Amino acid sequence: MNRFLSLIIASITLFFSSCEKFELSPTDEEYMTCKIDGNRWRSDGSGLSLDWTSEFLTISGYNDDGSNGIIISVYEKNIKSGTYPLNGKNIAWYDDLDVSTRHGWKADSVHTGSITIKVDDANRKVSGTFSFKAKYDEKDDVVDVTQGSFFMKK
């Protein structure tokens, strides 16, 4: 019985200690994923883009058929690991491409969110989480982007 109890305690300890890690892609595969109004969305492979300078960071992802995507730009000098607001200065955008029209929802000073970035300069990788509310400019339509996460290589 003691051996069984020790095994259970060790398993629980291992489980909770692994949950604290910020590694989002143990396989080293690049991706961006989130829920858009509760519906799962994912981009990986050729649909991903990372643009990083000393003035800004932009991550974007489009789904396999290119019909919709997420674009997030943080305009800060020398971006480091941390949390940044998505509030109009830093941009969060949900893009829905229809065959005949293009619809875009973006975060602004009222419809806000945040992105948490982890920079791994030694291995030239960036990962993080994000969520935001975004409004369609021409209507009062708002989308809720939640449970977002990403992993990309510089």
Rank of each mutant, 00 (worst) to 15 (best):
R3E: 14
R3D: 15
L5S: 05
L5C: 06
S6Y: 09
L7H: 06
L7Y: 05
I8H: 02
S11I: 04
L14W: 09
C19H: 05
C19R: 15
E20S: 12
E20R: 12
K21L: 15
E23W: 07
E23P: 01
S25A: 06
S25M: 02
P26D: 07
T27G: 10
T27E: 12
D28G: 15
D28T: 10
Y31I: 08
Y31A: 14
T33K: 15
K35W: 01
I36F: 04
I36W: 01
D37M: 05
G38I: 03
R40K: 14
W41S: 00
S43Y: 02
S43C: 05
S43V: 01
G47Q: 04
S49C: 08
L50E: 03
W52C: 10
W52M: 14
T53H: 09
F56L: 11
F56K: 10
T58H: 09
G61V: 08
G61T: 06
Y62H: 04
N63G: 01
D64F: 14
D64H: 15
N68G: 03
N68W: 00
N68R: 07
I70T: 04
I70A: 03
I71Q: 04
I72F: 01
Y75G: 04
E76W: 07
E76I: 08
N78I: 02
N78E: 10
K80R: 13
T83D: 05
Y84I: 01
Y84F: 13
P85H: 08
P85Y: 08
L86P: 01
N87F: 00
G88S: 07
G88A: 10
K89R: 10
K89W: 02
A92P: 11
W93M: 14
Y94G: 02
Y94A: 04
D95R: 11
S100A: 14
G104V: 13
K106E: 07
A107R: 04
A107H: 03
V110A: 09
V110G: 01
H111W: 06
G113L: 04
G113N: 01
I117G: 07
I117M: 05
K118C: 12
K118T: 15
V119N: 06
D120K: 02
D120H: 00
R124F: 07
K125Q: 14
V126G: 01
S127E: 03
S127D: 02
G128Y: 02
T129C: 10
F130Y: 15
F132M: 10
F132Y: 09
D137L: 05
E138K: 15
K139W: 08
K139L: 12
K139H: 12
V143Y: 03
V145G: 05
G148H: 00
S149D: 04
F150P: 00
K153C: 05
K153M: 07
K154L: 15
